[in-house]
Each structure stands twice: as C-alpha cells, then as structure tokens.
Amino acid sequence: MHDAPSTAELVEAVKRFIDDTASPQLTGHAAFHARVASNVLATILRELEQRPGAEADEKDRLIALLGADVDTPLDALNRELCKRIRSGNMDLSTDGLLDHLKTTTIAQLSVDQPRYSGLALALQSRG
C-alpha cells in the first residue's frame, strides 16, 4: 500500500483545517467542540509516534514482572497484572511493580495530556 500522504500528514492537514479555517468561523458550543477536536488530533499525532515503542517496552517489562510467556498479548498481560494485584499476590512492596506502573503511566500521559502538572511531578521525582 502507498503511504503518501502518510497517516500523520493526513491528520495534520485536518488539524490545520480545523484550527485555521473552521474554528475562527464558529462560536459558542461548536467553537468549544472544535477546540476539543483539534486537541484530539494532536493526541493522535503523539500516539502515532509514541505508542508502538511505548507498548513494546511495556510488554517487555510485564513479561519480566509476571514471568509470562513472550507470546502473551499485551491486553492479557495487563489483565493478569490486575488479577495479581487484586488477589493480594502483588502490592506496593513488590519489587519493580510501582516503577513499572510509573513508567507506563508517564508514557500514557505523554500521549494523552503532556502538559498535565502530575506528569511534571512524576518526571521530577524520577530525577
């Protein structure tokens, strides 16, 4: 399949249309939703760039943490992690658990809301 324009280029073009052409002509509720839509497209652009690498790292960490089979899909790994925390098998004192959750949440927030104050705090305490 062709990739010109790429997914990112297409999203960028739509975002420019919303920001430069559509938004200035809107008022009230519609203007608010256009701003939200533009923010969503910015999230998609960050996601296209960051998710593949972040998920590969997350998966490696989960396989090590859970001692799971390398072929286990990411969703199943996370469900297993939830199960072990819920059963009390893993908790705040488990080596590497909170570190893993922190790294994963930092990666998630870097896509979702990179300007959120809690992200800066988490990065600071990481040093």
Binding site: F32, L109, D112
Partner: peptide
C-alpha cells in the same frame, strides 16, 4: 457520541499519574 465525551476518556490517565505519585 460527542468528541468531548470521547476525549475525556484520555484524561483518566491524569488521575493515574496522581495516584502513582501518591502511592510513591
């Protein structure tokens, strides 16, 4: 079906990082 309701799903992670910081 509004974009605003969809987008708020990507704010859940804000509370996750707050919880991580508090748990730490």
């Amino acid at each position: 079906p509004s974009v605003e309701r969809a987008a708020i799903g990507r704010r859940v992670s804000e509370t996750e990082i707050d919880l991580v910081n508090l748990l730490e």
